[in-house]
Amino acid sequence: MSWIAEFFDDVYLDFMQYYRGEEATRQEALFIQKALGISPGKRVLDVACGHGRHMAHMPRDSVVGVDINVKYLKYAKRFGDVVAGDVRNPPFRRGAFHGAYIMHSTLGMFGPEADLEILTWLSGIIKPGGRLLVDVANKAKIEDIYAALGETWNFWISAGPYRVLSTAHYNPLHSKIREVRQIYKAGKYLGERVLELTLYGLGELRIMLSTVGFVVEAAYGDFNGEEYRRGSDRLIVVAMKTSGVSKALEEAVKWTK
């Protein structure tokens, strides 16, 4: 079983109700609506929608959710249409959506090759002129922590009754961070979970997006609209779909076959 299947369980679902509660989720959803220009008649895709945390605060019939976790989709379908599918190969026709958003470092969970594959598919299903929002952990801030503390450091995460001791390991050669989390709820130990991410900087995301036909329009450091800075917790990029996959990428794919 992959770390992803083990990580996104009932404990994570409960933890998120406290970690990113109703008010924080509503603020994120409003930011997404504004960034993507969601309005009546426009349909956008929630990539890896999970239990529908953001769908719950979107205009009705404006968002379709896709996720591979069928158990989470049972919750998400209360807020709109959902589809069970792998985000690395979403089951939608070309130009099906006016925009899409991929949140909470989902881009980064599968590795560089698969992440570029995800962006390529999203380029295909978003109409020209549509927008894509990508939210990832801020690589620059994590690299500054690495420079100050070394390759391993510990920190606590508190959320409602939860206390989580996280031990982070950063590999700068591969831009990968691995967190081993010891989870406690109301003083009771619930076990260990592992999170692994490939991190991307603003320049790297710009190149990846441009390769598959997007132009970056803005970068933010928070869902309150704060401009992106090196010390921001998040890197939130908004990009517009302008064209198809670049000739260079097409030739590279042909060459590997």
Score class of each variant (00 low, 15 high):
Arg88Gly: 13
Tyr220Ala: 08
Tyr72Gly: 04
Val66Lys: 06
Glu117Gln: 15
Gly129Ala: 08
Pro172His: 08
Ser105Phe: 00
Glu6Ile: 01
Gly111Ile: 11
Leu149Ile: 04
Phe223Lys: 09
Thr106Pro: 02
Met16Ala: 08
Arg229Gly: 10
His174Met: 15
Gly201Ser: 08
Val215Asp: 15
Ser166Tyr: 04
Lys247Thr: 13
Tyr75Pro: 01
Pro91Met: 07
Ala76Gln: 05
Ile118Arg: 05
Glu6Asn: 07
Arg131Ser: 05
Pro161Met: 12
Leu122Val: 03
Ala186Cys: 09
Asn171Cys: 12
Ile68Leu: 12
Leu122Tyr: 05
Glu117Met: 11
Ala35Met: 12
Lys74Gly: 11
Phe97Asn: 03
Arg78Gly: 13
Leu36Lys: 06
Arg181Met: 14
Arg53Glu: 01
Leu107Gln: 03
Gly150Thr: 06
Met208Ser: 10
Phe97Val: 05
Ser2Asp: 14
Ile183Asn: 00
Leu132Glu: 02
Ala35Tyr: 03
Thr25Cys: 09
Ala248Phe: 15
Lys247His: 14
Leu122Phe: 07
Ala248His: 14
Leu36Asn: 10
Ala100Asn: 05
Ile68Ser: 13
Thr167Asn: 06
Arg78His: 12
Leu205Phe: 02
Val180Gln: 02
Met16Phe: 07
Val11Thr: 10
Leu107Ser: 04
Ala148Gln: 15
Glu204Thr: 00
Ala252Phe: 15
Ala100Asp: 05
Met103His: 04
Ser62Lys: 03
Glu113Ser: 10
Ala140Asn: 06
Pro172Asp: 05
Ala56Ser: 14
Lys139Gly: 00
Ala35Asp: 02
Pro40Glu: 14
Ala114Tyr: 13
Leu116Val: 10
Glu226Arg: 14
